[in-house]
Design a protein around this nucleic acid. Structure first.
Lengths: 217, 217
DNA sequence: CGCATGCTTGAGCACGTTCAATTGCGGTGG
DNA sequence: CCACCGCAATTGAACGTGCTCAAGCATGCG
């Protein structure tokens, strides 16, 4: 269903494995950590990000219920090339690599699903590359908001189902705190989004799409 | 061997399929084209790129002998999200999707290799995302040169085994023609690279690495 | 009550892009 | 053989976006 979920097979694999609970802000693994296995998110939100310079990071994606994390460990590298941190309290299950590999050997359909999943992830990543090169900040932020809107359903009032600090939103948009601020202010002033202190609400989705479209002519 | 090659299995699949020859500059497919199958490069170089605005593009990667092209068609989209164009004369073989899918069903090892390949591609793409966000142009160009150096072996004099127009190099570095120009001039003046009109030569690899390292502190 | 920490805003600056003008060169036709 | 044209290479100057830095507020906690 969601492009990022492998609902059934992984669930089947993982159902008798031990669960893991991460509190908000806790980190699951960090760039450079040795690959031990992969993780399957039952509930909550994990951000997958890359750091440099202590207070600079770029958030590549959010993993939520039904998503997997750490799958880059399936590549040739012996270490994770990304970090994973809980954005809110998250329950996940750890599948050690030997077990996972043997599941892959037994279950051909799982591998195919996984391959397809990777293909979609790659698509997303390359789209992001393109956007970073040719879109101005405001459009990137608009895009980021729309992606959040797709991925996280909204509550009854219409607020996004993810509570993201501005810092995180900035990192997800590929910009810095202050810049994100001014743009969010703009968008709020224009009546396109609003915030209730906790989360955000997109009031005018087509306005966001239009901001993005300006660059794609 | 090379992270981007699937030497044996695909070769086995493809050995009785019809070959295809593309002249320099010819395009294999364009963003939005319906996915018909995937391609396997026997010889030559294909650039995989995304376009917008007629004369603006970003080159995501180069596919060369042993690489596959069009594999994003394996994702959920019905259309290629990228374009593919020959940088020099290229021989490749087309494998239609039904045939390829059935090969995947028969040959579990192939799927696993492919999955691993995707994982590595994803790693590369995410690395690129990071670099675009936090590196200044000069460092990105240095990085681009090093990647070319890795991927394309050098001739007896030490020149890169790829003849890339400056326009292409700019697109690969995520910048524009003029900017690339000035930086290439700088690098030449500093004695780090040189050019013989056809191709380029990296004279001082560690100097390039140092330019990149300045940003990663 | 005072210090610390994070939010907010302002001003300046730098990098890289844009635009335009000039040069160089190869091909073509007179 | 020279003159002209066209296109790509090259350079210069100016502009704008978005980042940096730092000061002003607010909020919280000892």
């Amino acid at each position: 269903m969601c492009r990022n979920s492998l609902p059934d097979w992984i669930a089947a694999i993982s159902h008798n494995k031990k669960n893991l609970v991460l509190k908000k802000g806790q980190t699951l693994f960090t760039e450079g950590d040795a690959v031990k296995g992969i993780y399957f998110v039952y509930d909550g939100i994990i951000k997958v990000h890359k750091n440099w310079n202590k207070d600079k990071e770029i958030i590549l994606r959010f993993a939520t219920r039904g998503d997997i994390v750490g799958h880059l460990g399936l590549g040739d590298g012996a270490a994770y090339p990304v970090s994973a941190t809980a954005v809110e309290q998250t329950v996940l299950c750890f599948i050690d690599m030997p077990f996972f590999e043997s599941s892959l050997n037994i279950n051909g359909s799982l591998v195919k699903q996984l391959m397809r999943f990777f293909a979609n992830e790659l698509y997303q990543a390359e789209e992001k590359v393109k956007n970073l090169v040719h879109m101005p900040v405001k459009a990137r932020i608009a895009q980021a908001l729309l992606r959040l809107d797709e991925q996280f359903s909204t509550d009854e009032e219409g607020y996004l189902g993810i509570e993201l600090s501005r810092q995180n939103l900035a990192s997800f948009s590929g910009t810095i705190y202050e810049t994100l601020f001014r743009v969010v202010n703009e968008l709020t002033a224009e009546g396109i989004i609003k915030t209730n202190g906790r989360s955000m609400m997109i009031c005018d989705k087509s306005a966001l799409e239009q901001i993005i479209a300006l660059e794609n002519n």
